[in-house]
Design a protein around this nucleic acid. Structure first.
Lengths: 254, 254
DNA sequence: AAATTAATTGCAGGAAAATGCAGAATTATC
DNA sequence: GATAATTCTGCATTTTCCTGCAATTAATTT
């Protein structure tokens, strides 16, 4: 048998339990832990695993649980995303909405790539007059739907993963510009480690972007807070804004 | 720069995880960071890399992630190209098909924008090794789906109509490169007047592209032959190839 | 209350699933 | 083109699942 890394206070089942009672117990366990293992239930309920399996099959047929190999899951268990939809889209929209407030008429802005940035590009007021530099072809195309925006795409070698332009050409071109505000997405973000990323070239570009900007705003959904990647982009102290979807009272701010 | 060989603050998975739970964890990681490495997941989930690979294959078959060598990527990260209602698509495909024959392994190619060019980008053999410069963000994104292509996007101001980069920056950047072959779409094409276009800035870019190329190929569907626009790009005599979907005996060739 | 029927349970043995491992094949990287 | 990393393939092992069956228990009928 396998050992659990935690010991739960397990409700003691009555001996000689009826089927219905077992079912109730199983449902309770699933509601409590979102999952059950056949092997655990067999011990807890003092019946054979076959019986448990039959129980789980019954409950599954009634649509009350989701049976899987080895046990069962809560039916409310779903993948942490909606099919055909961008993960945490609402959070990203919220972040984007807040970020836009930092932009004012006539500003010169520099942006990176990523889905949060795409959300921001979509949410920008249709009549805003401003200049946007970007290293992301996708963001550039989205921004170009706004008739009063001047969109300048910083060229370079297109990264196949990050879908932003990278390489020395991009970095040197970035050296030549000076913008009021730079929006960056973050792959990893952590109080101690600052902003981190996993791709060397992407890090170089992000650093160059920060150098070119008077002020820097990091946009990140709350979930990413406290995650660390392999390479450092900058420390949090070199940022002016940190935009997330968390409320100020969130424990992640300590 | 600081290098981290491990990410430390990761969500701790439960031991004895069910397959579905692992899948959920993987999806979450992908949605959070846009990519995952099999080796990282193997450590985080405490299972062998083989198991991770099988998980990734499953999720990939279900269309939930994009499996790549070494790990997996978020699917929502890729540009959805399905403009299925392109005008005269078959003709353009035919033109594109012919154009591709001019490209050989290791070549350095420069391309413009437009739907014909997009068709060409899609039809390029998936394993071709070559370098592509382009002034079109859309073409660049399409080309970046080919793993062996080096894609370099010439930056500049993004034209709202033509969706290619224009302006002095684009033109001066073009001055600095030298390519084997340049593919251009044509707005107007005529025996006497040569290649013509209607947008001043686009004309400047096209001229610069021609200057940068050893050979120039114009791609045009037969319908556009004999049409003239306001501004001249070049005369037909300065071209090496004229690719259309017409048969050689077509009256338009006289 | 006894007899009959129906439902439940455990068990054996085989099928299926999940996982890890070794070696070959493929792909990436320099 | 050599080297390293990743993937694939086949295989062995373990775990879980299923089927039929017999024993037991519960429910129903007489």
């Amino acid at each position: 048998m396998q050992l659990y890394h935690k010991s739960f206070k397990v409700e003691q089942p009555i001996s000689n339990m009826l089927k219905k009672e077992r079912h109730a117990f199983i449902i309770k366990q699933i509601n409590l832990h979102n999952k059950v293992l056949s092997s655990d239930l067999s011990i807890q309920l003092q019946v054979s695993e076959d019986t448990i399996r039959r129980d789980l099959n019954n409950l599954s047929e009634e649509g009350k649980i989701l049976k899987v190999h080895g046990g069962a899951l809560s039916k409310s268990f779903h993948y942490p995303y909606q099919l055909n939809d961008i993960y945490a889209k609402d959070s990203k929209k919220e972040v984007a909405q807040k970020a836009i407030k930092l932009i004012s008429e006539g500003m010169v802005v520099l942006t990176g790539g990523g889905t949060t940035m795409m959300e921001m590009a979509r949410l920008i007021p249709k009549d805003l007059e401003a200049t946007f530099f970007t290293v992301s072809p996708l963001v550039a195309l989205e921004l170009s739907e706004h008739k009063n925006l001047t969109v300048i795409l910083i060229g370079g070698q297109l990264s196949k993963n990050a879908h932003i332009n990278i390489g020395s050409k991009t970095v040197t071109d970035l050296l030549e510009i000076k913008v009021d505000l730079c929006f960056l997405g973050a792959n990893g973000i952590d109080l101690k480690e600052g902003i981190t990323d996993s791709d060397f070239e992407v890090v170089q570009v992000k650093k160059a972007m920060i150098r070119s900007a008077a002020k820097v705003a990091i946009m990140s959904i709350g979930e990413k807070l406290d995650s660390v990647q392999k390479m450092k982009v900058c420390s949090l102290s070199s940022l002016e804004y940190l935009i997330s979807d968390l409320k100020p009272e969130d424990p992640k701010f300590q």
